[in-house]
Simulated scan of single mutants.
Amino acid sequence: MENREDAVRGVKALMFDFYGTVVDMQRGLTEAIAPYLAAKGYTANPPSRVVTWWRRTHFENSMIDALLHREHTPYREIGRQAVHYTLDRAGIEHTDEEVRGLVSQIERLKPFPDVVDALSDIKAHGLDLVILSNGDVDMLASGVPYSGTEHLWDRVISVAEAKSFKPHADTYRTGARLMELEPEQVLFVANHAFDCVGAKAAGMKTAFIDRRKRPFGNSTYPPDLVVEDLAHLAQMVMRGRAGSGLTADR
């Protein structure tokens, strides 16, 4: 792993995953589904476990879609497929309208507590902040303002512009191109190892947010930084910028 000066040297933008890195997806969806499960009389598993099934199925289906690299399936549709499967697995009778209502909760997620202050500190040091998300354009247009972080971003990019879900290489290359940057000028930030691996393989520098205290698990494309949360990331970036003689004026 590089030291912190090397990790930010030449970087002009920090590009963030949104769901699970900026906003707390597990907690938000658990709070959303809990009353639904209670109304259905479902007690076989806690709401958090049902959400884990939901998210894992969504992830698997989006990876299949990316590997096929044919016509891009919208994130919302992948979500509906995942929720239908999850409720079927749990033996819960449900309607299409109920599924649509649960999936819509993805647009109503709050950020982790450290996010707003950390992003504000990083932005004050002259770096552009960008979202590169698997979410659909319209979902991000609702979800980013709801998170209260809208004012911090220089650009919000949906992978729909690359027509493939992360970690397909086209997504990261498209993100860099839209920012008029080379991949090596971007530090990609994610709470998910697969996202960091994809970005690193595409030529970006990467920062792994190890909120869950788990091994990264890939020695071929290791992250350039491993931090506890975004507050820790902000400290590392600011120290690295100072050590490189860079200021807010770039």
Rank of each mutant, 00 (worst) to 15 (best):
V11D: 01
V227Y: 00
H94Y: 12
V103W: 03
L178Q: 14
C196V: 06
M1H: 12
G198P: 01
P223L: 09
T206I: 03
Y221F: 07
A202V: 05
G143K: 03
R56D: 15
P113I: 06
V23I: 07
T52Y: 09
G101E: 09
T171N: 02
V83A: 07
Y221K: 01
G245T: 04
R89W: 13
P215R: 02
A199W: 02
S48R: 15
V99S: 02
A7Q: 01
N218F: 06
A118M: 03
E2I: 07
I92C: 04
S120W: 11
Y19V: 05
Y36M: 10
Q105S: 14
E184S: 15
D154F: 08
H94T: 01
G203C: 05
V50C: 09
R55G: 00
Y172I: 01
I106T: 06
H192D: 07
R89K: 14
V116C: 08
D17E: 05
V189T: 06
E71L: 13
H58R: 09
E71N: 13
G28E: 00
Y42H: 06
V83G: 06
L14D: 05
V115G: 06
R177E: 10
D117G: 10
S104V: 06
R214E: 03
A231S: 10
N218I: 02
L29Q: 02
E31P: 08
L132C: 05
Y75F: 15
G10D: 00
V50P: 11
R241W: 04
Y146C: 08
Q26R: 13
A202D: 04
S147Q: 01
W153S: 07
L102P: 04
D65R: 12
R250F: 14
S164N: 11
F188L: 04
P47D: 03
S133F: 01
G91Y: 08
L132H: 06
A248S: 15
D121V: 10
G203N: 00
R70C: 14
Y85G: 09
